[in-house]
Simulated assay, not measured.
Amino acid sequence: MSETEFDPKMLEALICPQTHQTLHYDVDKQELVSKSANLAFPIRGGIPVMLIDEARHLD
Protein backbone atom coordinates (compact mmCIF):
# COMPACT_ATOMS: atom_id res chain seq x y z
CA MET A 1 0.00 0.00 0.00
CA SER A 2 1.38 3.39 -0.94
CA GLU A 3 1.32 6.37 1.41
CA THR A 4 -1.55 7.95 -0.51
CA GLU A 5 -3.90 4.96 -0.31
CA PHE A 6 -6.66 4.83 2.29
CA ASP A 7 -6.28 2.03 4.83
CA PRO A 8 -9.69 0.30 5.10
CA LYS A 9 -8.83 -0.70 8.69
CA MET A 10 -9.47 2.95 9.59
CA LEU A 11 -13.20 2.28 9.07
CA GLU A 12 -13.21 0.53 12.44
CA ALA A 13 -12.40 3.86 14.13
CA LEU A 14 -14.30 6.31 11.91
CA ILE A 15 -17.98 7.22 12.13
CA CYS A 16 -20.15 9.81 10.45
CA PRO A 17 -19.67 13.16 12.24
CA GLN A 18 -23.35 14.00 11.76
CA THR A 19 -25.17 10.76 12.63
CA HIS A 20 -22.44 8.80 14.46
CA GLN A 21 -23.28 5.79 12.27
CA THR A 22 -20.89 3.53 10.37
CA LEU A 23 -19.40 4.45 7.00
CA HIS A 24 -18.98 2.55 3.74
CA TYR A 25 -15.74 2.82 1.75
CA ASP A 26 -16.36 3.56 -1.95
CA VAL A 27 -13.09 2.47 -3.58
CA ASP A 28 -13.95 3.81 -7.04
CA LYS A 29 -14.84 7.33 -5.89
CA GLN A 30 -12.38 7.38 -2.96
CA GLU A 31 -15.06 8.45 -0.52
CA LEU A 32 -16.46 7.35 2.80
CA VAL A 33 -20.22 7.17 2.46
CA SER A 34 -22.70 7.78 5.26
CA LYS A 35 -25.99 6.34 4.04
CA SER A 36 -27.76 7.57 7.19
CA ALA A 37 -26.72 11.20 6.53
CA ASN A 38 -26.81 10.90 2.73
CA LEU A 39 -23.27 12.30 2.58
CA ALA A 40 -19.98 11.20 1.01
CA PHE A 41 -16.75 12.35 2.62
CA PRO A 42 -13.72 12.67 0.30
CA ILE A 43 -10.43 10.89 0.80
CA ARG A 44 -7.50 13.08 -0.22
CA GLY A 45 -3.97 11.74 -0.28
CA GLY A 46 -5.12 8.70 1.68
CA ILE A 47 -6.61 10.87 4.45
CA PRO A 48 -10.38 11.02 4.98
CA VAL A 49 -11.75 14.56 5.23
CA MET A 50 -14.49 14.18 7.85
CA LEU A 51 -15.85 17.73 7.69
CA ILE A 52 -19.55 18.08 6.93
CA ASP A 53 -18.82 21.23 4.88
CA GLU A 54 -16.47 19.20 2.64
CA ALA A 55 -18.92 16.30 2.14
CA ARG A 56 -20.84 15.72 -1.06
CA HIS A 57 -24.61 15.33 -0.78
CA LEU A 58 -25.86 12.11 -2.32
CA ASP A 59 -28.81 12.10 -4.71
Score class of each variant (00 low, 15 high):
Gly46Ile: 06
Ser2Leu: 10
Ala40Gly: 01
Ile43Gly: 01
Val33Met: 07
Ala13Ser: 13
Thr4Tyr: 14
Phe6Ser: 05
Glu54Cys: 02
His57Glu: 15
Arg44Val: 15
Ala55Cys: 09
Pro42Ala: 07
Gly45Arg: 04
Glu12Tyr: 07
His20Ala: 15
Asp7Ile: 12
Leu32Trp: 08
His20Gln: 15
Leu14Asp: 00
Thr22Asn: 14
Glu12Asn: 12
Thr19Asp: 08
Leu58Ile: 11
Pro42Gln: 03
Asp59Pro: 14
Gln21Pro: 04
Ile43Thr: 03
Asp53Ile: 02
Asp59His: 11
Leu39Ser: 01
Leu14His: 09
Gly45Tyr: 07
His20Glu: 14
Asp53Met: 08
His24Asn: 15
Gln30Asn: 07
Leu58Thr: 03
Thr19Phe: 08
Gly45Trp: 03
Leu39Tyr: 01
Ile47Asn: 09
Leu32Pro: 00
Met1Asp: 14
Met50Cys: 02
Asp26Arg: 10
Asp26Ala: 12
Phe6Lys: 08
Lys9Asp: 11
Glu3Gln: 13
Asp7Gln: 02
Cys16Pro: 04
Asp59Leu: 11
His57Cys: 04
Ala40Leu: 04
Ser36Gln: 13
Gln21Arg: 15
Arg44Tyr: 09
Met10Trp: 14
Lys35Pro: 05
Val27Cys: 05
Gln18Ile: 08
Ile43Lys: 02
Glu3Gly: 13
Ile52His: 10
Pro48Trp: 01
Pro17Asn: 02
Tyr25Leu: 08
Leu23Met: 05
Ile47Lys: 09
Pro42Asp: 05
Ala55Asn: 04
Asp59Trp: 10
His57Ser: 13
Glu3Cys: 06
Ser36Trp: 03
Gln30Trp: 01
